[in-house]
Design a protein around this nucleic acid. Structure first.
Lengths: 227, 227
DNA sequence: CGCTGCGTTGAGCTTCTTCAACGATCGTGG
DNA sequence: CCACGATCGTTGAAGAAGCTCAACGCAGCG
């Protein structure tokens, strides 16, 4: 069955038998979202969590004057919005589909019962939350201890790694969204791209990035040098 | 036994039988730390996690030029450093005792076995990690979307709540530490205390705080007004 | 009694944001 | 096929917020 096949490729369900996967599949709601569509809002009642099957989802907060901070971008195979399943009852942020996306929704109560019955599912979920915690630590460190050029340098190095440590690649999100992910605004990001390019650390052409001086970027990312 | 009695008051072990508590107690290492003593450093091999029995512990990151960001302060009953137990192998931050502290240490491997055998322990741990995740979300939002006066206002309201929503209370940490918790430096924090006081939102005398205009503070905390 | 750590204050500067304008690209409808 | 508007990205000028560096008061403690 299609749902079970998709579930079998999700890390969270690693180590489950076919029968267990069927139990999981039986509680899934298969949902589709258009690009830009709201999945849930900050403060909504959290009736379950999601896993991205295709597309991408951003989880973010917004300030009263409209500035947006992206907390995390989730791609295929990744679960999100688990918090209200285990603690409290409300989603602590907003979530939007960044592209047309297919999501599996897991209702809170049914999923908790599955966890009780499946220690390895519990362990997988603990690993997943721990990883998220680590990513959040990194974001906090980045926002508080690095300046924007350092954050951008880190992101570019991360993207390069993700593409197999090559020096030429494309940005995976729009620059305005990248600004929001790095805790700044498009104008500032644009100026810093220009500076990185002037100092010949990178070259840039639309979404195409080329790393010219990896060591220089690494120093920037570690906060050990300035522009 | 002393260890079991202490464990029984920890939320993480809620719902465990006396026998189960004894199993948990059997893997505990009882540790003492002096004020200011390092518990572990960023990047150290994570061989287990801790629960604070008495005293207080700060978990923090440091930038190359020495600026410190406190991620969280843990008090009695609270577990910390669980991440490397479930995902990866290294502590993602530093931890210091802020006061003379007694901690229980739980070795990774033995604890994971306990979790496998105790679904309710797994659920409690999931709840604990979820709560931490929520707190980190809040810190990210605070650092990225609020200015320092807003962060301070939030913290003062939080302290007031913790003391039973009264208007007069003492800061629970040194101002230099509060600066680090709010993502700023002592000089800036000091100037903002002065401003809040000039605008008659609070009055301040050493560590003694009095809230004079709660509504005004709430507006500040929500980012809907400026100083 | 003097040292040390903490907190405060001032002056100057860096970084980032705000506000405004403008060019390029893209999809839509005429 | 072209025209239009919308979105996105870039650039400039000005201003705000916060940081750095330096000096100094004060309290606690050896």
């Amino acid at each position: 069955m299609d749902i079970r096949k998709n579930l079998s490729q999700v890390d969270l369900f690693n180590g489950l038998s076919l029968q267990q996967l069927d139990e999981v599949a039986s509680i899934v709601a298969d949902k589709k979202y258009k690009k830009g569509e709201l999945i849930f809002a900050d403060g909504d009642d959290g009736i379950g969590f999601y896993i991205v099957i295709s597309g991408r989802v951003k989880v973010y907060k917004v300030s009263p004057d409209g500035k947006e901070q992206i907390m995390h971008i989730f791609g295929p195979g990744q679960p999100f919005a688990e918090v209200p399943v285990f603690e409290g009852s409300r989603y602590p942020a907003n979530a939007d589909a960044m592209e047309p996306s297919r999501l599996f929704f897991f209702p809170k109560k049914a999923f908790v019962e599955l966890i009780h019955a499946n220690p390895s599912l519990a362990m997988n979920m603990l690993a997943s939350l721990s990883q998220r915690l680590k990513q959040f630590s990194y974001l906090i460190e980045s926002l508080s201890l690095k300046e924007v050029p350092g954050r951008l340098a880190s992101y570019l190095l991360y993207l390069s790694d993700k593409n197999g440590s090559i020096d030429e690649f494309d940005l995976d999100i729009a620059k305005s969204q990248l600004a929001s992910l790095l805790g700044t605004i498009p104008e500032t990001l644009s100026r810093i791209f220009t500076k990185l390019s002037q100092k010949e650390l990178i070259s840039i052409n639309g979404p195409k990035i080329m790393i010219l001086d990896r060591t220089g970027l690494e120093y920037l990312a570690e906060g050990e040098s300035k522009l």
